[in-house]
Nucleic acid binder design. Structure first.
Lengths: 223, 223
DNA sequence: CCCCCTCATTCATCCGATGACTCTTCTTGT
DNA sequence: ACAAGAAGAGTCATCGGATGAATGAGGGGG
């Protein structure tokens, strides 16, 4: 391709080189178009692509700015990748999650404070008697999110968020007997929390690994 | 926002719902514009955003198609996130890498075949006497890539690729004494390969963790 | 049967005009 | 003097139409 893609690369380049810093304002469209040597229409396509990727932020009536560029912001656009994945691809995503999440949980075991543990306890209590699949999945996601947030690494949090989107969970649960599956997931969550309360990082990691492995088996069964 | 972003969401929706399958061709621009109820200019911005994210592929003179949607393709657009990261953000990326890569290496230890091990041996031999920083970084990246590819999970490979781009490596190495750093990295690579040859997954994981931890320390020192 | 040319199709780029929104400044009334 | 509201300038959003460039298909010539 050409003009528009050139512009995308050039703007990216200006950011990487430091010429454009996070939060900075870009020249207005017609000026920037002239600088980069293309029409305003084509430049707009470039800008739109970059705003869709959360690299730029355009505000009507105001101007276009470089975003904060925090990775968890940029990672967000990937939830789509997870949403459309199925079959072998879904398995690949889940494998990565199985490699990563137990380690994160182990870290969390060492860093968890009382408030964190109370929060997890609360989520599990709420989910204990949930029978509705949709609602249980929400609790499930809450639990994992809260668990990972203990590590206090936004990149890690967003990555694991992507590796297990709601869409994916719904799809997997749909292929199983909902009742037993819910009870098993709940038991496994309890195991993880127990290990956290005991400050046993190795056990917590193992529990998390088992938990995800079980999901992987369901996925294999349902596909 | 409005029209264009609506169009982006609608097209994404059509893909997630299965109405548009990978490889499928979209209606031509003016027809699709009419279907979605916007002008061709605005639709083009939407399409450009989706092509930049590797979700669609536009071919002049032919048509616009849904891409294969493989996650490693979609992940590719994130290398930018890693390129612009520094300071706390770079540390977060590196922490994720330290959590993930050792586990991947452990898996690789169990799956490696003779050809894989030979390939790694070859890369290390080539890098042994390299003194040029740029060239050494290339060998470094080759080693890690080849190592992770053993697992045969494109999502994992692309993810680790992103977590440690060339830009980041150059930036880190620049803050250290190049000579000693190169020799240390080489020793650590040798340790990992030795563990792999011994089929010792746990040792391989530990070696990989130490290796990345050392990089983290350089990063802390250089910032 | 194969190669090359022609042509319809489709995306790429450009231009100009109008609408919508934001922020600032100035006016106005108290 | 101050606060509320109105007016204006600046900027992005959207539209419609025109022209260029690449692709692929089909026909004609060797």
């Amino acid at each position: 391709m050409a003009v528009t893609d050139d512009a995308i690369d050039k703007i990216k380049e200006m950011i990487v080189s430091g010429e454009l810093q996070p939060g900075m304002r870009l020249p207005k469209e017609d000026v920037l178009a002239q600088q980069l040597g293309l029409s305003r229409s084509s430049l707009r396509e470039a800008i739109r692509a970059l705003t869709a990727m959360r690299i730029l932020i355009a505000r009507q009536g105001d101007g276009t700015y470089v975003s904060s560029l925090e990775p968890h912001l940029l990672l967000e656009t990937l939830s789509f990748a997870s949403d459309v994945s199925e079959g072998a691809t879904a398995r690949q995503l889940l494998q990565v999650r199985r490699l990563l999440e137990p380690q994160a949980v182990a870290l969390a075991a060492g860093q968890a404070e009382a408030a964190d543990l109370d929060g997890l306890r609360e989520i599990l209590d709420r989910s204990r008697h949930t029978t509705d699949a949709e609602e249980f999945i929400r609790h499930d996601m809450d639990f994992h999110r809260r668990l990972i947030d203990i590590v206090d690494n936004p990149v890690l949090s967003m990555l694991l968020e992507i590796l297990s989107t709601q869409t994916q969970r719904v799809r997997i649960l749909r292929g199983t007997q909902v009742g037993p599956a819910i009870r098993q997931v709940h038991r496994e969550h309890e195991m993880i929390l127990t290990a956290l309360l005991a400050r046993d990082a190795a056990l917590a990691a193992s529990a998390a690994a088992m938990h995800i492995a079980a999901v992987e088996q369901w996925l294999d069964g349902s596909v």
